[in-house]
Amino acid sequence: MTALLMRDLALAIRAGGGFGLGLAFFLIVTVLVPFGVGPDPALLSRIAPGILWVGALLACLLSLDRLLALDWEDGSLDLLATAPLPLEGMLSVKALSHWIVTGLPLVLAAPVLGVLLNLPGPGYLWLTVSLALGTPALSVIGTFGAALTVGLKRGGLLLSLLVLPLYVPTLIFGAEVARRGAEGLDVATPLLMLAGISAGVIALLPFASAAVLRVNLR
């Protein structure tokens, strides 16, 4: 499992691996929003938590179609499926490497982008915490979508259509934590819900992902 993680990270960092693409996308989306809604600082600081959450979510979505498709095309996926590693574990590792490559940089970059959107002071902590708790769920759910669509031509668009509705609960609770944090309200309830969703998804969804990947490989 460590071997697979190290290989995926190495592949992501080397030429053509797409490391940093999600981050650049996140930056651009965040920069575009003020152009769309105007430079009013009060308005921007009010919508900042939501914009940053939606931007992070879209950035996560962007790299999902490469998550399994590359290994599918060159036959690695067949070989991994015959290896002693359980498919559930393999997909969890894939989700973890997706998170390290895409999700973690987003979590770290979000406070910096918060400055651009005039995020209120207490918001920085809760924005970072909510993204740190929520983005792993986004990666795991995305892996499920990638496993569903892996064999399909033009699977990318379908993947977005399938995954976005599944992102709704995470987005709602995540953005709610960030919003309440920014307004100085109590964040305990949405924070617990967000953590619960992430924990449940990480524990259970790899089984569904493995089941659909087995179907797609046969």
Partner: peptide, 18 residues
């Protein structure tokens, strides 16, 4: 069983040893 298909599962950016 070790299976070898038409596709070798080789990653072009990794070295032979890797």
């Amino acid at each position: 069983v070790a299976y070898a298909a038409h596709a070798d599962g080789i990653k072009p950016t990794l070295s032979v040893t890797e």
